[in-house]
């Protein structure tokens, strides 16, 4: 337990330093957050336009879809806020700066990831929260302690999947150069998470559930609250499966980091 306390203390210290340096770019903070809210607003607007033409999609109404959308935005906030440094990994590895993380007496993954806290994720948090509350109200889900706590646990489980995907995508840079494209590809998956997985048939449903787990970013975890009468078994294993995915991505990342031998500069 004291070890956990030690890591929390270090995390807060690094976070404070990072926020201090970010404070000197206040314009960037404002513009990034406006950009974040705008891009989410465009996603919101696409749903509105779609449902101007169509009543429902595969049995899903407008507000149920907005619920999925809001849920996915919230589930994607942790990967945006806490794991954003993965985007810089390939530059650190290529330039040789990564070696500095190897010489600290703490976990490499922890130290590397904790170095950046991305403030623009906060815009997404606010927008996603607003969308979820709005859709919650429109769908008419009862506001009970059970539903709220289930949502929180589901959100935690859901957030693990995208973190795992991005960890794995970033770690490819230990083996291949130009892994930026892999990151861009993986990051696009998040845009697909806002649709119900039930639209896919056959092999593709398996693909998007177990191989590229986008069904777990919103659909399976949120259905527990959204459609409580008919919960698939796959929903209940969200949390353990999320932990497994996260652990695997962590092992993959660490394997790459151990293999790293610097660039000799």
């Amino acid at each position: 337990m004291s070890r956990l306390g030690f890591y929390i203390k270090i995390y807060l210290k690094i976070l404070k330093q990072d926020l201090k340096s970010k404070m000197s770019y206040r314009a960037d903070f404002v513009i990034s957050n406006i950009g974040m809210i705008l891009t989410n607003l465009v996603g919101f607007l696409s749903f509105i336009i779609l449902f101007e033409n169509f009543e429902e999609i595969n049995g899903w109404t407008k507000y149920e879809m907005l619920f999925l959308y809001g849920f996915s935005l919230l589930a994607l906030t942790p990967v945006q806020c806490f794991f954003d440094n993965n985007w810089n990994l390939r530059f650190a590895v290529e330039s040789g700066d990564f070696i500095k993380y190897c010489f600290r007496p703490i976990n490499i993954f922890f130290y590397y990831i904790s170095e950046v806290f991305d403030v623009k994720g906060l815009g997404q948090l606010v927008f996603g929260g607003g969308t979820l509350v709005y859709a919650w109200y429109k769908v008419g889900i009862p506001v009970t302690f059970r539903n709220i706590s289930l949502t929180c646990v589901s959100l935690f489980a859901a957030s693990l999947f995208m973190i795992a995907v991005m960890n794995a995508a970033a770690a490819t840079c230990f083996w291949i150069t130009r892994s930026g494209m892999v990151m861009v590809l993986a990051f696009k998956f998040k845009d697909y998470s806002k649709y119900p997985i039930s639209i896919f048939r056959g092999v593709f449903r398996v693909l998007f559930t177990f191989i590229i787990p986008i069904a777990y970013i919103a659909y399976y975890p949120s259905i527990v609250v959204l459609r409580p009468d008919n919960i698939p078994v796959l929903s209940w294993i969200s949390l353990p499966l999320g932990l497994v995915f996260f652990y695997l991505s962590y092992r993959f990342w660490m394997r790459g980091a151990r293999k790293y031998s610097g660039t000799g500069s």
Binding site: A27, D28, I31, S32, I34, G35, L38, T39, L45
Partner: peptide
């Protein structure tokens, strides 16, 4: 502005829609 990410994401989402 020196805020590349923010400006770029605004452009991308507006153009795409």
């Amino acid at each position: 502005t020196e805020s590349t990410w923010g400006i770029n994401i605004m452009k991308e989402s507006i153009v795409m829609l």
